[in-house]
């Protein structure tokens, strides 16, 4: 299963691949948080094959908690419900299902030799780097 793990990688983005954990540390539908290049990321394993990553920051409560939400589905969409005030975010697009104007960032994920890697965005030149 490790060898065949497919990861989401629609758009080609730039950055550095950061190893965060082994695939077998992730349980289906139970999120974890990771620190990737100073960013807080929420990782979700949707099934044997698919792993996604979104920002951990809940835009509604401004707390870093999305990794601790419950994973669910609406039709074919897989979402995580923020544990704070329950808004659902699409795990593949980062969009809030209840308010299309709100979204969280998504990150590219890949698995190499059973190790999960997240693409850290290039370091911005913002004040806090």
């Amino acid at each position: 299963m490790m060898a065949g793990t497919k990861v989401r990688q629609e758009t080609v983005r730039q950055g550095i691949w950061v190893s965060v954990c082994r695939v077998d540390q992730l349980r289906v539908d139970v999120g974890v948080a990771a620190l990737v290049g100073g960013e807080q990321v929420a990782l979700f394993r949707l099934d044997a094959e698919e792993i996604t990553a979104i920002g951990n920051l809940d835009p509604y409560s401004r707390a870093n908690v999305l990794s601790r939400g419950i994973v669910g589905s609406r039709g074919d969409t897989v979402f995580v419900a923020s544990p704070m005030y329950k808004q659902p975010f699409d795990l593949r697009t980062g969009c809030c299902l209840d308010d299309p104007a709100v979204s969280v960032p998504t990150f590219d994920v890949r698995v190499l030799d059973g190790v999960v890697q997240v693409l850290a965005p290039p370091v911005s030149d913002g004040p806090d780097g």
Binding site: A33, A34, L35, Q40, A63
Partner: peptide, 13 residues
């Protein structure tokens, strides 16, 4: 706190 940095406190708190 983080799967890759278990004891690092959430810096935003």
């Amino acid at each position: 706190s983080f799967i890759n940095a278990p004891d690092t406190p959430d810096p935003s708190i």
